[in-house]
């Protein structure tokens, strides 16, 4: 065996500055590659794209009659689909990320490199975000293509706005998933919690609020704000606002929101969504950085 000394290497192997700056990118690329290579990713992406394209074509046969109204149907169906699938994608991918790497010991391998925990966390976050954005874009691209060819362009802006909202939603859900991941002891527990959180966001929260409203005559302002606090509902209301134009259609609570918040309504709802995109991820990062047990 020859000597193990690296060619041209000085004896002290300080990592070059540029490499340190690139650590986040290198980790992100690796995470992205792993995500894209996993069959889960393809299952989600293909299922989402197919469903989105089918919804777009099913909702459209009346477009000659209905014009932009049929786009409203496409959009409403897409929003419902996004509400269900996109959070599940983000939550499960996020919940698996750190917990699974910690459990397998791979995280220790990663952190034994000249990489700090902040870089590791945001590298993983970045890589998974790009993977999720790609999956969501494939779905919206497929639906958009069908819509664009078969229906009117009056609402192209609305369609693209919904896409951007879905991007924000999926990254928000990734953040929540990663928050679960840094706290969970085991990857399987993280996945279980993620599925429960998904149920809570998609079904239990709304059902609870509906039940409360029916049982207690909850005031509409409380009902509205409690609903908007749910990121998936914030997404739906923002999306609805962008293709219907007004939340008046949502009955007394919608009318309340329009009256009380006026022009601030959409910024408030989108703001809630953006906060969900930022806060859980930052919380997960702080926890990951301070609770060093790997």
């Amino acid at each position: 065996m020859t000597a193990i000394v690296a060619p041209n290497a000085e004896r002290v192997a300080d990592v070059p500055e540029r490499a340190q700056r690139r650590a986040i990118v290198a980790i992100a690329r690796k995470e992205l590659g792993d995500a894209v290579r996993s069959r889960w990713f393809w299952m989600w992406a293909i299922a989402f794209a197919l469903l989105a394209a089918v919804l777009a074509s099913v909702a459209l046969p009346g477009s000659r009659i209905a014009g932009s109204a049929s786009f409203g149907r496409t959009a409403a169906s897409l929003v419902a689909l996004v509400q269900i699938i996109v959070p599940l994608m983000g939550l499960t991918l996020g919940a698996q990320s750190i917990a699974a790497q910690r459990e397998s010991g791979a995280l220790r391998f990663l952190l034994s490199h000249p990489v700090n925990r902040t870089e590791a966390f945001w590298g993983i976050h970045l890589g998974l975000s790009v993977a999720l954005l790609a999956a969501a874009s494939a779905g919206f691209g497929a639906a958009g293509l069908v819509t664009a060819i078969r229906s009117g362009g009056a609402q192209a802006g609305a369609f693209l706005r919904i896409t951007v909202l879905a991007w924000v939603l999926v990254i928000a859900m990734l953040g929540v998933g990663m928050l679960i991941s840094v706290f969970a002891r085991r990857a399987s527990a993280a996945l279980g919690i993620a599925v429960f959180v998904w149920l809570a966001f998609v079904f239990l929260g709304d059902l609870g609020l509906m039940g409360t409203a029916v049982a207690t005559r909850m005031p509409v302002d409380a009902l509205f704000f409690a609903t908007v606090a749910n990121p998936i509902e914030a997404f739906r209301l923002a999306a609805l606002g962008s293709f219907v134009g007004s939340l008046d259609i949502l009955g007394p609570s919608g009318t309340y929101a329009v009256d009380a918040l006026g022009p601030a309504l959409m910024p408030v709802i989108v703001g809630v969504l953006v906060l969900w995109m930022i806060l859980p991820a930052v919380g997960a990062w702080i926890r990951f950085r301070t609770a060093k047990d790997v």
């Binding site: 192997a13 300080d14 990592v15 010991g105 791979a106 220790r108 034994s112 990489v115 700090n116």
Partner: peptide
């Protein structure tokens, strides 16, 4: 980071990806 750049580490459990 500077410390880890000077250290080669072989873990007991030999975990990678």
């Amino acid at each position: 980071k500077a410390v880890r750049s000077r250290v080669g580490y072989v873990a007991q459990e030999l975990s990678f990806y």
